[in-house]
Structures are given as structure tokens and as C-alpha cells.
Design a binder for these strands. Structure first.
Length: 426
RNA sequence: GGGGGGGUUCCAGAGCGGUCAAAUGGGGCAGACUGUAAAUCUGUUGGCUUCGCCUUCGGAGGUUCGAAUCCUUCCCCCCCCA
């Protein structure tokens, strides 16, 4: 199966320029996607582009990940309703290094002629003089052409700085640069990048007469219409400092049936047959959630490794399974701590627990499970708080008898929110 | 420059002298059902020393026993005619 067919059945094609498929059939082709280093970690939204590169490489072509050290200093207006803040050069350099490290997990950088590469457009844009840019790039595209782009058109009313207006030219130049220096003939990206990519193709055609191509994938959506990749905690990051492996795994495990059927095609490398089998299996016994588990397993292992995955599955079993207070008490301390790694932790004084703490105070003042006493009371009234797997009410107290391993309490709010409370000695 | 309409609790949007911590909808959170899904139903959604008190209705003053509601002034939005 060739690259375009592969992406097609996976639902990863939104649009491509005529001739794209033919080019890929003709010869080993170099293609790139751009990633703006706006943070020092990728999040799962970036994963789609990365998977496109992965499939490209598997099809025998050469992937380039372009870290936008220069473009990140400008800000892409595509899909943005407001002018962006500029990042400092120092921040960008740091972000870029971190992102590079993450990319190493996904692409093969030692695959002979089609080894993956990482480039940074800062390297060729930063030295460009303003006059040089105007003569080299600006001269070849008209304002009317630039204004016709949706990314610009949508912002003309609300406001768009000259800087953001110029963004598409900078990105276009990247494409030209890679075409000339790396023989790169395909640029890929999310569907919001279509305008920027075609500007690049146009620039290349006018300056060199060369023919290059574009391929975009649809924006990932959720069936309920909310934004993909966000939880109440914010973005789902690949870096465990921002999203613990536990939450990362839980994110995928909690996807709805409908979404998972689409996601598993996009975010895993399972074959069509394997995925069809999983979907059939899931339809057979939906409550087992074979599909979500397969997706979560595959992607968690690739991002965080097998060991982290095993721990996280064990943790999930304990946190959501039928386990009881006794089961918690029986866990060896090291397993216990591994299970609760990444779960919010609060500390209370030993003396306070000895004396017993009113439940409302415990939830709101001693810990931040509830934002206020009022909220703590409401939660207790609603019956949503459990301690060590046992539901509690506002008349209960927290005392030393409940401690696990002599110094821990497991607090649960609703089904999904867990907190660990540790008793400070002294 | 002229005329008009607004700024209300997370959002949208009622209220227009007391019964307003403020209708209704959305969102959030929780409960039931279930599969740690979706849909549905239910509860809840300013704070506290909680049968009461305190802080909220763009800012600052004022009228009144009493104001989100009336007056003055300031700030900010939007629309229409030039």
C-alpha cells in the first residue's frame, strides 16, 4: 500500500495537490512538516503531523521535521483569532532542544538514505536581511494573493499586524529553502496550513519553475464537539513533567467509542486488518473497551515506555477496580507509591491526624480537594468523596486508624479524581 | 460631529426600589444508569464562624429606612446618520 492510500484509509487526508501521489510513486521523495516551538514539549495535537512523517518514512520516503525557531518568533495567524505574543530567543532555543529529544522517539534517524532529519528555520532565516528578504521573497508574490488566504482574510476585520501578515512569506521561504537544499518536494500539515503551504508552492514555481506538492490532514475533532487534546488539566503533553504517564494513559482510555475508532487509525501503526479486528471485538463486548485499551497501550508505550505503561495499568486497576480498603492496606509501599505517582499529593501534620480532623476542614483547608468549605460540604452531601475506597460524610472524621502504611490516605472525588495525602512526621 | 443601545454572578442573557446571592439556558462538578464511553434523568454551581452573617450586578459618589434597580459623574463597548 502506498503512502497516499495508507493515509486515506486512516482518515488522515483532508486535501492534496494534484500530482502528489504520482510524485511519491515516481521516486523517493523528501517531505516536511513544521512545528512551532511554542512550548518545551510537544502535545498530542502535534502527534498527527508526526504520524504523517512516520507513515511517509515507512513508505520509503524521507521525512524532515522543521522546528520553527524563526517562524515561532513571528506567530502564525492561521486558526488564531488574536495576535500572538512573541517568545524570546532564549525560550525558543530551549523549546527547540526539548522538542528534538521527543522527536527521536518517533522517527528513525538512522535509516540510510531515508533517515529522518530535523532542521531549524532559524538557521537560514535569522541571517536574512530585511532588504534581502524583500528582494528575494516579497517581490514574487502580490498582496492580493496574500490577502486572499483565509488565515489573513478572517483577521482583516479584527486586526492583524504586518508581522503576522508576513508569516506566510517566511513559511513559503522555508519551503523554497528546503526544495533547493534538500530537494524537498512535499509539505504536509494540518488543514489550517493549506494556505501557507500553497504560498510556498507558488513561490517555488515563480522563482524556480519547480513543481512541488502539498498534503494536509483534517483537524482532529471529538464527537461531542469539544476541542481535541484538552482535559480539565489543560493540554495533554508528551512530557511527563506536564502530563503524568497515568493521566496520559487515562486520556486515551477515556475516549468515546466513536472517537476511538478514528483515533486508533491515526495514532497507532496497527494495520487495517488488526484495527478491523479490534473494532469487531469491541462491538462484540463494548464494556471491555478493547479498542480504547489497545490505543492507550500502544501510544503510552511509545511515548513513555513499557515500564511506565505497566505501572500505569496497575495503578488504573487499583484506582478504578473493585479494590477495597483492605486491598489498599495490603499493597507493599513501593508498589503503592508507584501506583500513585502523578496523582496530586497533599501533606498534613501528624499531630493533626492523631487528634482527628473534621471532614470539611480536611477537604478544604488541610488539602485542596475542595476550593472552599462550601464546596467541601456540597461534595460530602452529594456523596462524591471516598477515603480509602470508603464513602464518607460530613460527620466523619479523619483519624490515624485509617492511615495506609502508617502515613497515607487515598482520597477520591467522584469516580475519576484521586488524591494522595501524606502525613508529615512531627 | 449628530442620534441611539449597552456594560449583571464561568459564558449567554433576564431583572429595573424591598419577597435578589439575583429567572432561564449553556458550561462546570457530582449522583443514578453503564463500560472509568455516549445518551438520558437528578442534584449542585459566591464566601463564611451557615436556621444567620459578609462580599458581589463596569468605577466613584449620592438619593432612600432600603438600590443590580433612581440621580450625578467617570471609564469601556456596540449600532445608525454624517
Amino acid at each position: 500500500m502506498n503512502f497516499v492510500e495508507e493515509l486515506k484509509w486512516r482518515g488522515m487526508i483532508h486535501d492534496f495537490m494534484p500530482g502528489t501521489g504520482e510524485q511519491l510513486q515516481k521516486e523517493m521523495t523528501t517531505a516536511y512538516v513544521g512545528i512551532d516551538p511554542t512550548a518545551d514539549s510537544l502535545h498530542i495535537g502535534h502527534l498527527v503531523s508526526i504520524m504523517m512523517l512516520k507513515h511517509l518514512q515507512r513508505a520509503g520516503h524521507k521525512p524532515i521535521a522543521l522546528v520553527g525557531g524563526a517562524t515561532g518568533m513571528i506567530g502564525d495567524p492561521s486558526g488564531k483569532s488574536e495576535e500572538r505574543n512573541l517568545l524570546s530567543e532564549e525560550e525558543l532555543r530551549h523549546n527547540e532542544q526539548s522538542i528534538k529529544r521527543q522527536l527521536l522517539k518517533f522517527l528513525d534517524f538512522d535509516a540510510g538514505p531515508n533517515s529522518a532529519e530535523i532542521v531549524n528555520n532559524y538557521d537560514w532565516i535569522s541571517g536574512f536581511s530585511f532588504l534581502g528578504f524583500l528582494r528575494e521573497v516579497g517581490k514574487h508574490l502580490t498582496v492580493s494573493y496574500m490577502i486572499a488566504k483565509d488565515s489573513v482574510k478572517n483577521r482583516l476585520e479584527t486586526g492583524l499586524s504586518f508581522t503576522e501578515f508576513t508569516y506566510q512569506l517566511v513559511q513559503a521561504y522555508d519551503y523554497l529553502y528546503l526544495y533547493r537544499n534538500k530537494n524537498c518536494k512535499l509539505q504536509m500539515g494540518g488543514s489550517d496550513q493549506w494556505g501557507n503551504i500553497t504560498t510556498g508552492a507558488e513561490l517555488i514555481r515563480r522563482k524556480t519553475g519547480g513543481e512541488v506538492y502539498a498534503l494536509t490532514c483534517p483537524l482532529i475533532t471529538k464527537a461531542d464537539g469539544t476541542k481535541f487534546g484538552k482535559t480539565e488539566r489543560g493540554n495533554v503533553w508528551l512530557d511527563s513533567r506536564y502530563t503524568s504517564p497515568y493521566h496520559f494513559y487515562q486520556f486515551w482510555l477515556n475516549c468515546s467509542d466513536e472517537d476511538t475508532e478514528r483515533y486508533i487509525k491515526i495514532f497507532t501503526l496497527f494495520s487495517k486488518e488488526e484495527i478491523d479486528a479490534l473494532i469487531a471485538e469491541h462491538k462484540e463486548a463494548p464494556h471491555r473497551r478493547a479498542l480504547q485499551k489497545a490505543l492507550a497501550e500502544d501510544i503510552t508505550i511509545r511515548v513513555h515506555g513499557k515500564e511506565a505503561y505497566d505501572t500505569v495499568v496497575e495503578a488504573s486497576g487499583i484506582l478504578f477496580g473493585q479494590s477495597t480498603a483492605e486491598a489498599l492496606h495490603k499493597l507493599p509501599e513501593d508498589v503503592f507509591l508507584a501506583v500513585f505517582d502523578g496523582v496530586p499529593l497533599f501533606e498534613v501534620g501528624h499531630g493533626e491526624v492523631e487528634q482527628g480532623i473534621e471532614m470539611v476542614d480536611f477537604l478544604s483547608e488541610k488539602t485542596q480537594v475542595a476550593k472552599s468549605k462550601g464546596e467541601a460540604r456540597r461534595m460530602l452531601k452529594e456523596g462524591s468523596i471516598s477515603i480509602n475506597k470508603t464513602r464518607v460524610s460530613d460527620t466523619d472524621k479523619v483519624d490515624a486508624n485509617q492511615l495506609i502504611a502508617g502515613r497515607y490516605l487515598v482520597v477520591q472525588r467522584g469516580k475519576k479524581n484521586h488524591y494522595l495525602v501524606r502525613v508529615k512526621s512531627g
